[in-house]
């Protein structure tokens, strides 16, 4: 274990826990992806996977303490898993079942688990950023030292909601950390096709300057680095010094989402855009070689934090957990049709 890790309070148990969460997210996403063959038709609509972003998600969330809150995007399976939500209920939600975490009302894009501080997600790019900013305002008013983590993608930084929210967060010194997961793709558009900074070869964290806010770019594939930088930003936010923009560079290892097709056409995950759209398989292969999950496993084993056997044991436990989640989701009942109007008004 390096002194860097110790400095951030990352002892053996914590590192092992982080690794396990990354494996849980990966396994969950693999099972979701596999569903299109295993249980064709069970998942309707659109799913978006977090594979490739596990280190960024877990490294960020590991900096939080009880009472902190998280808001994210429609690519939202990873966060609640790491926050402790029940994988069974999450999978059941994606299957549209009554036992789902939102009773089948939300689906893959709208997971919510208030008890664990996961306040919700928007399916609209950038729309969640002001929501998180508002939650941070609430935290500032409560004065209980709560911090809000706000996750969004690089595409969202071109939305007006991004600029408006970061300006206000900076002006009001809100206790929030904006974590931009830059995966270089906005569906099938590459970031340099739609972002003036990316086109100029600049990091997107430079945008923070417009709001008089610190901005930092990190390797989102390294959970220790993520933990260190996001942790410092969280502490800054907690002490009332205001927000930080963290650009966490990740590579999404699956396509943007499953194909969009009318009912009757089987859904599946297409090839990644790097190959399918841009004809750049070497880019994708390089990303696979940098896959954060095996990378972190190798590091932990190499540094003697855990043994290969322990790592395998974690993977085996997680496989069982996610198999149980799929079974639970598959066997659960669909909601009664008449329940559709249950939540029109609170």
């Amino acid at each position: 274990m390096s002194s860097d890790q110790e400095a951030h309070g990352l002892d053996k148990d914590r590192l092992s826990w982080m690794f396990k969460q990354m494996v849980r997210i990966r396994e969950f996403e693999e099972r979701v992806k596999n569903t299109f063959e295993e249980h064709p038709g069970a998942i309707r609509g659109h799913t978006h996977l977090a594979d490739g972003a596990e280190a960024s998600i877990v490294g960020s969330l590991a900096t939080l303490r009880g009472g902190d809150q998280v808001l994210a995007t429609y690519r939202c399976h990873g966060y609640p898993l790491a926050l402790g939500s029940d994988a069974n209920a999450m999978m059941a939600e994606i299957y549209g079942k009554k036992t789902g975490i939102c009773g089948g009302y939300g689906g893959s894009m709208h997971l919510v688990d208030v008890d664990r501080g996961f306040l919700g997600t928007s399916g609209i790019v950038g729309a969640g950023i002001p929501h998180a900013t508002g939650a941070a305002w609430a935290a500032q008013i409560r004065k209980q030292g709560q911090v809000v983590l706000c996750f969004f993608g690089d595409g969202a930084s071109k939305q007006g909601a991004f600029a408006e929210s970061l300006n206000i967060a900076s002006l009001w010194k809100l206790p929030i950390v904006f974590v931009m997961e830059n995966n270089s793709y906005n569906v099938v558009t590459r970031v340099e096709q739609e972002d003036a900074n990316a086109a100029a070869g600049e990091p997107l964290a430079i945008k923070a300057k417009a709001f008089s806010m610190p901005g930092v770019t990190i390797d989102g594939g390294d959970p220790i680095e993520v933990h260190g930088v996001v942790g410092a930003a969280v502490e800054r936010a907690r002490s009332g010094e205001g927000p930080t923009l963290v650009e966490s560079k990740v590579y999404r290892l699956s396509a943007h989402g499953n194909i969009i097709a009318p009912p009757g056409i089987p859904l599946h995950y297409p090839e990644h855009e790097a190959i399918a759209v841009f004809g750049a398989p070497e880019e994708y292969e390089a990303a696979l070689r940098g896959d954060p999950v095996p990378r972190f496993r190798a590091r932990l084993i190499g540094e003697g934090t855990i043994s290969a056997e322990e790592a395998d044991e974690i993977a085996a436990t997680v496989r069982q957990e996610m198999q149980a989640a799929v079974d639970f989701a598959w066997e659960s009942q669909l909601p009664d049709a008449a329940e559709a109007l249950n939540h029109v008004y609170a």
Partner: peptide
């Protein structure tokens, strides 16, 4: 009351 950035030319600075 609206922003920490006094000059508008500084707001657009990141966009070159």
């Amino acid at each position: 009351a609206h922003t920490n950035v006094e000059r508008v030319s500084d707001v657009v600075a990141p966009y070159g």
